[in-house]
Design a protein around this nucleic acid. Structure first.
Lengths: 129, 129
DNA sequence: TCGTCATTTCCATGATCCTTGAATGATCGG
DNA sequence: CCGATCATTCAAGGATCATGGAAATGACGA
Protein backbone atom coordinates (compact mmCIF):
# COMPACT_ATOMS: atom_id res chain seq x y z
CA UNK A 1 0.00 0.00 0.00
CA UNK A 2 2.88 2.34 0.77
CA UNK A 3 5.58 2.80 -1.84
CA UNK A 4 9.31 2.40 -1.33
CA UNK A 5 11.45 5.30 -2.44
CA UNK A 6 12.67 3.29 -5.43
CA UNK A 7 9.12 2.46 -6.45
CA UNK A 8 8.18 6.13 -6.23
CA UNK A 9 11.21 7.10 -8.34
CA UNK A 10 10.18 4.56 -10.97
CA UNK A 11 6.59 5.78 -10.95
CA UNK A 12 7.59 9.44 -11.27
CA UNK A 13 9.99 8.54 -14.07
CA UNK A 14 7.25 6.66 -15.85
CA UNK A 15 4.89 9.63 -15.67
CA UNK A 16 7.53 12.14 -16.77
CA UNK A 17 7.20 11.17 -20.43
CA UNK A 18 4.48 12.63 -22.61
CA UNK A 19 3.53 9.44 -24.44
CA UNK A 20 3.32 7.49 -21.19
CA UNK A 21 1.30 10.14 -19.39
CA UNK A 22 -1.19 10.16 -22.26
CA UNK A 23 -1.36 6.38 -22.10
CA UNK A 24 -2.21 6.46 -18.40
CA UNK A 25 -4.88 9.07 -19.01
CA UNK A 26 -6.39 7.04 -21.83
CA UNK A 27 -6.43 3.90 -19.70
CA UNK A 28 -7.92 5.67 -16.70
CA UNK A 29 -10.86 6.87 -18.77
CA UNK A 30 -11.11 3.42 -20.32
CA UNK A 31 -11.90 2.10 -16.86
CA UNK A 32 -11.09 -1.22 -15.19
CA UNK A 33 -11.89 -3.05 -18.43
CA UNK A 34 -8.83 -1.50 -20.02
CA UNK A 35 -8.00 -1.69 -23.71
CA UNK A 36 -5.73 -3.76 -25.98
CA UNK A 37 -2.18 -2.59 -26.67
CA UNK A 38 -2.98 -1.76 -30.27
CA UNK A 39 -5.85 0.48 -29.25
CA UNK A 40 -3.57 2.33 -26.84
CA UNK A 41 -1.01 2.75 -29.61
CA UNK A 42 -3.68 4.24 -31.87
CA UNK A 43 -5.05 6.43 -29.08
CA UNK A 44 -1.70 8.11 -28.48
CA UNK A 45 -0.48 7.90 -32.08
CA UNK A 46 2.76 5.94 -31.84
CA UNK A 47 3.92 2.80 -33.70
CA UNK A 48 3.33 -0.56 -32.08
CA UNK A 49 6.92 -1.08 -30.99
CA UNK A 50 7.06 2.25 -29.20
CA UNK A 51 3.73 1.57 -27.54
CA UNK A 52 4.93 -1.80 -26.33
CA UNK A 53 8.08 -0.23 -24.90
CA UNK A 54 6.16 2.41 -22.99
CA UNK A 55 3.41 0.08 -21.79
CA UNK A 56 6.02 -2.30 -20.40
CA UNK A 57 7.70 0.66 -18.71
CA UNK A 58 4.45 1.71 -17.06
CA UNK A 59 3.67 -1.82 -15.96
CA UNK A 60 7.12 -2.23 -14.39
CA UNK A 61 6.46 1.02 -12.54
CA UNK A 62 3.29 -0.42 -11.03
CA UNK A 63 0.94 1.96 -12.83
CA UNK A 64 -0.69 -0.51 -15.20
CA UNK A 65 -1.78 -4.13 -15.19
CA UNK A 66 -1.98 -6.44 -18.18
CA UNK A 67 -3.82 -9.61 -19.02
CA UNK A 68 -4.03 -11.69 -22.13
CA UNK A 69 -7.41 -12.00 -23.80
CA UNK A 70 -7.19 -14.36 -26.74
CA UNK A 71 -4.90 -12.70 -29.26
CA UNK A 72 -4.82 -9.30 -27.56
CA UNK A 73 -3.11 -8.10 -24.45
CA UNK A 74 -5.33 -5.83 -22.43
CA UNK A 75 -3.77 -3.05 -20.42
CA UNK A 76 -5.65 -1.34 -17.61
CA UNK A 77 -4.87 1.40 -15.12
CA UNK A 78 -3.67 0.13 -11.76
CA UNK A 79 -5.76 2.32 -9.50
CA UNK A 80 -4.09 0.99 -6.37
CA UNK A 81 -0.69 1.88 -7.76
CA UNK A 82 -1.82 5.36 -8.74
CA UNK A 83 -3.36 6.06 -5.35
CA UNK A 84 -0.24 4.72 -3.66
CA UNK A 85 1.75 7.29 -5.61
CA UNK A 86 -0.57 10.06 -4.48
CA UNK A 87 -0.15 8.79 -0.93
CA UNK A 88 3.62 8.77 -1.26
CA UNK A 89 3.63 12.31 -2.56
CA UNK A 90 1.53 13.55 0.35
CA UNK A 91 3.01 11.53 3.19
CA UNK A 92 6.53 10.25 2.49
CA UNK A 93 7.59 13.09 0.29
CA UNK A 94 5.77 15.98 1.91
CA UNK A 95 5.54 14.59 5.44
CA UNK A 96 1.80 15.13 5.47
CA UNK A 97 2.40 18.86 5.55
CA UNK A 98 -1.00 20.61 5.75
CA UNK A 99 0.02 23.16 3.14
CA UNK A 100 0.31 20.31 0.65
CA UNK A 101 -2.43 17.95 1.80
CA UNK A 102 -5.20 20.41 2.62
CA UNK A 103 -5.47 21.96 -0.85
CA UNK A 104 -5.29 18.48 -2.33
CA UNK A 105 -8.08 17.19 -0.14
CA UNK A 106 -9.96 20.36 -0.97
CA UNK A 107 -9.57 19.81 -4.67
CA UNK A 108 -10.66 16.27 -4.17
CA UNK A 109 -13.76 17.27 -2.22
CA UNK A 110 -14.61 19.91 -4.82
CA UNK A 111 -14.63 17.15 -7.41
CA UNK A 112 -17.08 15.34 -5.10
CA UNK A 113 -15.50 12.07 -5.97
CA UNK A 114 -13.80 10.69 -3.02
CA UNK A 115 -14.60 11.52 0.56
CA UNK A 116 -13.84 8.30 2.46
CA UNK A 117 -16.70 6.68 4.35
CA UNK A 118 -14.71 6.49 7.58
CA UNK A 119 -14.29 10.23 7.74
CA UNK A 120 -17.91 10.94 6.96
CA UNK A 121 -19.23 8.65 9.70
CA UNK A 122 -16.63 9.78 12.18
CA UNK A 123 -17.59 13.38 11.62
CA UNK A 124 -21.33 12.68 11.69
CA UNK A 125 -21.00 10.72 14.95
CA UNK A 126 -18.13 12.20 16.94
CA UNK A 127 -17.60 9.60 19.67
CA UNK A 128 -13.99 10.41 20.44
CA UNK A 129 -13.03 14.01 19.64
CA UNK B 1 -3.31 26.54 -9.18
CA UNK B 2 -3.92 23.83 -11.78
CA UNK B 3 -0.95 22.48 -13.69
CA UNK B 4 -0.58 22.28 -17.45
CA UNK B 5 0.42 18.93 -18.85
CA UNK B 6 3.90 20.24 -19.59
CA UNK B 7 4.29 21.53 -16.04
CA UNK B 8 3.23 18.15 -14.69
CA UNK B 9 5.72 16.39 -16.97
CA UNK B 10 8.48 18.67 -15.70
CA UNK B 11 7.49 18.10 -12.09
CA UNK B 12 7.36 14.33 -12.46
CA UNK B 13 10.71 14.39 -14.21
CA UNK B 14 12.17 16.46 -11.43
CA UNK B 15 10.99 14.00 -8.78
CA UNK B 16 12.15 10.94 -10.71
CA UNK B 17 15.77 11.44 -9.67
CA UNK B 18 17.04 10.18 -6.33
CA UNK B 19 19.15 13.21 -5.42
CA UNK B 20 16.34 15.60 -6.25
CA UNK B 21 13.72 13.61 -4.37
CA UNK B 22 15.93 13.63 -1.31
CA UNK B 23 16.40 17.37 -1.69
CA UNK B 24 12.66 17.95 -1.74
CA UNK B 25 12.22 15.80 1.33
CA UNK B 26 14.96 17.65 3.17
CA UNK B 27 13.47 21.01 2.26
CA UNK B 28 9.95 19.97 3.24
CA UNK B 29 11.11 19.02 6.73
CA UNK B 30 13.15 22.22 6.85
CA UNK B 31 9.88 24.14 6.63
CA UNK B 32 9.04 27.46 4.99
CA UNK B 33 12.30 28.93 6.27
CA UNK B 34 14.20 26.66 3.90
CA UNK B 35 17.96 26.17 3.96
CA UNK B 36 20.99 27.49 2.05
CA UNK B 37 22.19 25.63 -1.05
CA UNK B 38 25.34 24.47 0.69
CA UNK B 39 23.34 22.91 3.51
CA UNK B 40 21.19 21.05 1.00
CA UNK B 41 24.32 19.80 -0.75
CA UNK B 42 25.66 18.50 2.56
CA UNK B 43 22.31 17.00 3.52
CA UNK B 44 22.15 14.86 0.39
CA UNK B 45 25.89 14.35 0.03
CA UNK B 46 26.72 15.73 -3.41
CA UNK B 47 29.28 18.33 -4.55
CA UNK B 48 28.18 21.94 -4.81
CA UNK B 49 27.96 21.99 -8.60
CA UNK B 50 25.70 18.94 -8.66
CA UNK B 51 23.53 20.42 -5.96
CA UNK B 52 23.20 23.66 -7.88
CA UNK B 53 22.23 21.76 -11.03
CA UNK B 54 19.51 19.81 -9.26
CA UNK B 55 18.21 22.73 -7.22
CA UNK B 56 17.82 24.77 -10.40
CA UNK B 57 16.04 21.84 -12.01
CA UNK B 58 13.60 21.62 -9.11
CA UNK B 59 12.98 25.34 -9.13
CA UNK B 60 12.28 25.34 -12.87
CA UNK B 61 9.81 22.55 -12.23
CA UNK B 62 7.94 24.72 -9.72
CA UNK B 63 8.74 22.57 -6.72
CA UNK B 64 11.11 24.94 -4.94
CA UNK B 65 11.52 28.65 -4.39
CA UNK B 66 14.76 30.51 -3.82
CA UNK B 67 15.76 33.81 -2.30
CA UNK B 68 19.11 35.42 -1.67
CA UNK B 69 20.05 36.13 1.93
CA UNK B 70 23.35 37.95 2.08
CA UNK B 71 25.95 35.55 0.74
CA UNK B 72 23.70 32.50 0.77
CA UNK B 73 20.84 31.46 -1.45
CA UNK B 74 18.01 29.94 0.54
CA UNK B 75 15.92 27.24 -1.07
CA UNK B 76 12.53 26.28 0.31
CA UNK B 77 9.83 23.82 -0.65
CA UNK B 78 7.07 25.32 -2.79
CA UNK B 79 4.07 23.86 -1.00
CA UNK B 80 1.65 25.30 -3.54
CA UNK B 81 3.55 23.65 -6.36
CA UNK B 82 3.64 20.32 -4.57
CA UNK B 83 -0.06 20.37 -3.80
CA UNK B 84 -0.79 21.37 -7.38
CA UNK B 85 1.05 18.26 -8.49
CA UNK B 86 -1.02 16.12 -6.13
CA UNK B 87 -4.10 17.78 -7.56
CA UNK B 88 -2.98 17.10 -11.12
CA UNK B 89 -2.35 13.46 -10.32
CA UNK B 90 -5.81 13.03 -8.82
CA UNK B 91 -7.87 15.13 -11.20
CA UNK B 92 -6.24 15.65 -14.58
CA UNK B 93 -4.38 12.41 -14.71
CA UNK B 94 -6.83 10.13 -12.93
CA UNK B 95 -10.03 12.02 -13.76
CA UNK B 96 -10.95 12.14 -10.07
CA UNK B 97 -11.55 8.41 -10.19
CA UNK B 98 -12.77 7.34 -6.72
CA UNK B 99 -10.50 4.31 -6.71
CA UNK B 100 -7.55 6.67 -6.79
CA UNK B 101 -8.80 9.63 -4.76
CA UNK B 102 -10.61 7.83 -1.94
CA UNK B 103 -7.61 5.88 -0.65
CA UNK B 104 -5.54 9.02 -0.96
CA UNK B 105 -8.01 11.09 1.02
CA UNK B 106 -8.15 8.21 3.47
CA UNK B 107 -4.41 8.18 3.90
CA UNK B 108 -4.53 11.90 4.33
CA UNK B 109 -7.23 11.72 6.98
CA UNK B 110 -5.37 8.94 8.79
CA UNK B 111 -2.40 11.28 9.04
CA UNK B 112 -4.82 13.76 10.61
CA UNK B 113 -3.11 16.57 8.83
CA UNK B 114 -5.38 18.02 6.34
CA UNK B 115 -9.13 17.78 6.41
CA UNK B 116 -10.26 21.06 4.83
CA UNK B 117 -12.47 23.30 6.93
CA UNK B 118 -15.11 23.53 4.22
CA UNK B 119 -15.73 19.81 4.26
CA UNK B 120 -15.88 19.62 8.05
CA UNK B 121 -18.46 22.38 8.40
CA UNK B 122 -20.44 21.14 5.45
CA UNK B 123 -20.67 17.70 6.99
CA UNK B 124 -21.44 18.98 10.49
CA UNK B 125 -24.21 21.23 9.14
CA UNK B 126 -25.77 19.45 6.13
CA UNK B 127 -27.94 22.17 4.62
CA UNK B 128 -28.08 20.77 1.12
CA UNK B 129 -27.62 17.00 0.97
C1' DT C 1 -0.17 -27.52 -40.33
C1' DC C 2 -0.33 -23.06 -42.38
C1' DG C 3 -1.38 -18.30 -42.55
C1' DT C 4 -2.74 -14.33 -40.15
C1' DC C 5 -3.06 -11.18 -36.52
C1' DA C 6 -1.52 -8.77 -32.16
C1' DT C 7 2.28 -7.88 -29.69
C1' DT C 8 6.86 -8.11 -28.23
C1' DT C 9 11.94 -8.21 -28.79
C1' DC C 10 16.04 -6.77 -31.17
C1' DC C 11 18.95 -3.28 -32.76
C1' DA C 12 21.04 1.00 -34.24
C1' DT C 13 20.59 5.89 -34.17
C1' DG C 14 20.01 10.13 -31.95
C1' DA C 15 18.74 12.75 -28.00
C1' DT C 16 18.80 13.79 -23.19
C1' DC C 17 20.56 13.51 -18.64
C1' DC C 18 24.03 13.17 -14.65
C1' DT C 19 28.47 14.16 -12.81
C1' DT C 20 32.65 16.87 -11.66
C1' DG C 21 36.40 19.98 -11.74
C1' DA C 22 37.53 24.47 -13.20
C1' DA C 23 36.21 29.00 -14.15
C1' DT C 24 33.02 32.85 -13.18
C1' DG C 25 29.73 35.76 -10.24
C1' DA C 26 27.96 37.84 -6.26
C1' DT C 27 28.46 39.44 -1.51
C1' DC C 28 30.51 40.87 2.65
C1' DG C 29 34.35 42.10 6.21
C1' DG C 30 38.54 44.48 6.82
C1' DC D 1 40.18 47.43 -2.99
C1' DC D 2 41.35 42.60 -1.49
C1' DG D 3 40.53 38.25 0.05
C1' DA D 4 37.31 34.94 1.62
C1' DT D 5 33.00 32.69 1.13
C1' DC D 6 28.98 30.80 -1.06
C1' DA D 7 26.96 29.66 -5.17
C1' DT D 8 26.27 29.19 -10.34
C1' DT D 9 27.86 28.28 -15.03
C1' DC D 10 30.73 25.94 -18.32
C1' DA D 11 32.51 21.96 -20.66
C1' DA D 12 33.41 17.09 -21.44
C1' DG D 13 32.81 12.49 -20.18
C1' DG D 14 29.85 8.70 -19.63
C1' DA D 15 25.34 6.77 -18.88
C1' DT D 16 20.55 6.27 -19.79
C1' DC D 17 16.52 6.77 -22.58
C1' DA D 18 13.32 7.27 -26.79
C1' DT D 19 12.33 5.92 -31.49
C1' DG D 20 10.86 2.94 -35.20
C1' DG D 21 11.74 -0.60 -38.65
C1' DA D 22 12.68 -5.55 -38.99
C1' DA D 23 12.40 -9.98 -37.16
C1' DA D 24 10.54 -13.21 -33.75
C1' DT D 25 6.95 -14.91 -30.61
C1' DG D 26 2.40 -16.57 -29.38
C1' DA D 27 -2.46 -17.43 -30.29
C1' DC D 28 -6.11 -18.36 -33.12
C1' DG D 29 -8.94 -20.14 -37.20
C1' DA D 30 -9.31 -22.81 -41.51
Amino acid sequence: MTLSEQQALDAFGALSQETRLRMVKALVVAGPEGMPAGAVADAVGVPASSASFHLAHLERAGLLTSRRESRSIIYAADYAGLSALVGFLMLDCCQGHPAVCAPAADTCAAASCCLPAEVVTELADPVNP
